[in-house]
Write a protein that binds this DNA or RNA. Structure first.
Length: 459
RNA sequence: GUCCCGUUCGUCUAGUCAGGUUUAGGACGCAUGGAUUUCAUCCAUGAAACAGAGGUUCGAAUCCUUUACGGGACGCCA
């Protein structure tokens, strides 16, 4: 099984889509699992639409997800170059083979592939005109995921455009031959192209590679119907990076989109993914994208992070909103993050969750506000607790706990009679990290000041 | 319109290829309750699916046929 050669062949024409990333990942996993070779080939034959920006983003996205390539841009070996725009002489020589075999013809400046079979003309509903068709023999594709698929190609197609550039179907097959690709793993949207490709392999006299067509990633129901498009939320890999999702979580999540390890394990490290990946586990039907599940997986990874790594990632999100800067005390930051870590499922929510640790200008949650003041005794509670906290010499979780308990006992109440009020007073909301540790970290001075502010504001 | 592919809880899926061990399992989400103390956390419990119809069989989520629905392709785009 070590002769496996797979390729990921994107065209850099726009932002990298989650489906593109998944195709890359599945090819990569298959190569790593089988001990084969993963080739990155850039299909940039469309000069009009290719951009350097899209290419940079693609490369960056692959690296972010931990996908490296054995052959591709930057590697020197017998199969390169890996930009199709640099392989024109190879295409020319392959085109000549077809010309010599009498399998091409020219029409309006373009070179067409000539199918074999009886020709006839017919009005085509879709094209809306009378066109020439060919009664070809059906092509059987033995797909590793969906079994035998029979399809018949009935129209000649373009190999070389009138501007001299080779077409996708042509270069795709030529390069798969030239690069000795053994398995073509790609999206189901290519399934109906495959008969064209098999026709070409046959015309060149080469055995086609094994095909495996992956199910589509569909829109989440609230975004409508059909396959996920670049405009849907969560569709772009760059978006996850910008929103400070963890790459290992994104990778884990997209691996689960259309593939299953067949047991109940969902959190899989990259090593486990490589070890367990198999085309058998790939689903046939389309998978609908679910951002809640994505967030959940991200949360699992966030919880498992060592505090140092957590602090590093969190800092990035906090800096974006200017809540922290180079002067921020790292020990203080770490202690704040430590009590937040097990509470929120994405770093992008961190600023909203924890701003009061870093700024006096934190938002007031109106729902929490009305809830806290509904009973009408909130100010009294603040007036009761303030002197108790003021008198505290040692500001630790233990002394805070004792203080609340003693006050509660004295007034024949439960400590939680004060908790929500105090929490709101010091943080502007009714939820957050564990209460006592939060007070400790905020410190006596700040807690008392905020209690005082609240008392004056709402009195 | 033509061709191809698909269809298990709202969603991701296990079970389907080798029909009986299934009161169809897990996860996300949702609901309810609990966690001396808040909570977006944790725990427990619950609601929730084999698309429909025929057939084959002692027996079908699993095999066959068919209908419906969903998806994809049909470019001198990739």
């Amino acid at each position: 099984m070590t002769n496996v050669r797979v390729r990921f062949a994107p065209s850099p024409t726009g932002s990298t889509h989650i489906g593109t990333a998944r195709t890359a990942l599945f090819n990569w996993l298959y190569a790593r699992h089988t001990g084969g070779v993963f080739v990155l080939r850039i299909e940039d034959t469309d000069k009009e639409r290719n951009t350097q920006k899209a290419l940079d983003e693609l490369i960056q996205g692959l690296k972010w997800l931990g996908i490296d390539w054995d052959e591709g841009p930057g590697t020197e070996d017998e199969y390169g170059p890996y930009f199709q725009s640099q392989r024109n002489d190879i295409y020319a020589s392959y085109l000549k083979k077809l010309e010599d075999a009498g399998r091409t013809y020219e029409k309006e400046g373009a070179i067409y592939f000539k199918l074999e079979g009886e020709r006839y003309t017919e009005f085509d509903q879709y094209v809306g005109a009378e066109i020439e068709k060919v009664k070809t023999q059906p092509v059987v594709i033995d797909d590793l995921i969906r079994g035998k698929v029979t399809r018949r190609e009935e129209r000649d197609f373009v190999l070389q455009r009138s501007n001299g550039d080779p077409s996708f179907h042509f270069v795709n097959v030529v390069d798969d031959i030239a690069m000795k690709i053994t398995h073509v793993i790609r999206g189901e949207d290519h399934l109906s192209n495959t008969s064209k490709h098999v026709e070409l392999f046959n015309a060149f006299g080469f055995e086609p590679p094994k095909f495996a067509h992956l199910p589509m990633i569909l829109k989440s129901p609230k975004d409508g119907k059909g396959k996920m498009s670049k405009r849907d939320k969560g569709a772009l890999i760059a978006e996850y990076r910008e929103r400070d999702f963890l790459p290992e979580a994104v990778r884990n999540f997209i691996a689960l989109l259309g593939w299953s390890p067949k047991d109940d394990q969902e959190v899989l490290s990259i090593a486990e993914l490589v070890e367990r990946f198999s085309l058998d586990g790939v689903q046939k039907g389309g998978a609908r994208f679910d951002e809640k599940k994505m967030a959940h997986i991200n949360f699992e990874y966030m919880k498992a992070m060592p505090i140092e790594a957590y602090t590093r990632s969190a800092s990035s999100a906090l800096r974006k909103t200017k809540l922290i800067n180079d002067d921020t005390n790292q020990d203080y930051l770490a202690s704040c993050l430590k009590i937040c870590q097990a509470k929120i499922d994405s770093f992008e929510n961190l600023p909203g969750f924890a701003s009061y640790f870093f700024s006096e200008d934190y938002p007031i949650n109106e729902k929490a506000e009305s809830k806290v003041f509904k009973k009408g005794d909130a100010i009294t509670r603040i007036q009761e607790i303030t002197p108790v906290l003021e008198s505290l010499e040692d500001w630790s979780e233990a002394t805070l706990e004792t203080a609340f308990n003693q006050l509660a006992e004295k007034l024949a109440a439960k400590p939680f009679a004060w908790f929500p009020v105090v929490r709101f007073a010091v943080s502007g909301t009714n939820s957050g990290p564990d209460f006592l540790p939060m007070l400790k970290i905020l410190g006596k001075k700040r807690v008392l000041a905020r209690l005082k502010n609240t008392e004056e504001k709402y009195a």
